[in-house]
Design a protein around this nucleic acid. Structure first.
Lengths: 130, 130
DNA sequence: TTGAACACCCACATTGATGTGAAGGTCAAG
DNA sequence: CTTGACCTTCACATCAATGTGGGTGTTCAA
């Protein structure tokens, strides 16, 4: 598919799709007319990228993560450098930290909303009975 | 405490502490000489801010979350507008999405590392026995 | 065959989070 | 009283992610 369709299906602008390519996150084939030709699988990959960017990861890191994120893990055996492994382990830790932080805050918000909403409904009741 | 100490204790630069203030995330008192005066509690708050920023939340949103994130929930009862509640609920959803995305990827990395490391150790063994 | 819709590339603009440095005020210790 | 280590404000710089638009080529359908 071409860039327009991919943009539409992922909600990611054409501009950004080209940017991702420039950052070596995706590498679409080129048609004879030099149009980019995306594969079906790029839809998921782009959504993946979008999610990670949205979660605060820079393209530099995402680029390193992507190779190990596709379902049929094609690339496990060949030359995985120790530095690559170390990088992944480091990023794994940082992901865990992020997750923990976000979870903590999500829970805090939940607590807060629970409290507010319960107080609020109590107030409504007392007003109804007064 | 003054800005230098807070910077040191949180690992957040003075520049950024001033920036957070400009964005209304923190509001330190001022000494007679116009020096900023931070309270002990600001250490945790700043760490909180740092974590959320790092997780991809913009200051605009963090500003809205902060009021409901301090432990002794002082502000639950008074005028919580319905819009505020709606905002929080929306952000809660977005946090959950981020968490899910990050968790998925952390797990994928874990799987990948497991695979790579096990293959790798198998190779080592076979080489040892050859 | 022309016009609309899409693609290309390029370049400049913006926004948010940061760094850096200048010009100056405060204060404690030598 | 000066020096050094703080602090102040202000302004300009940078970097990454993203928007916008111009100028041009391609495709397709009327």
């Amino acid at each position: 598919m071409r860039i327009g369709e991919l943009a539409e299906r992922t909600g990611v602008s054409r501009r950004l799709l080209r940017y991702y390519e420039e950052q070596r996150l995706i590498t679409p084939a080129r048609a004879l007319n030099s149009y980019r030709e995306y594969k079906e699988s790029h839809v998921d990959i782009v959504l993946q990228i979008k999610g990670l960017l949205d979660a605060g990861l820079p393209t530099r890191i995402i680029q390193q993560l992507l190779p190990c994120l596709d379902k049929p893990q094609t690339i496990y055996v060949p030359n995985v450098t120790p530095e690559m492994i170390a990088t992944l382990q480091r990023e794994q830790v940082r992901l865990a930290e992020r997750i923990e932080c976000l979870t903590r805050n999500r829970d805090a918000i939940a607590d807060y909303l629970d409290t507010v909403l319960s107080v609020r409904s109590a107030n409504t009741e007392s007003m109804a009975t007064s």
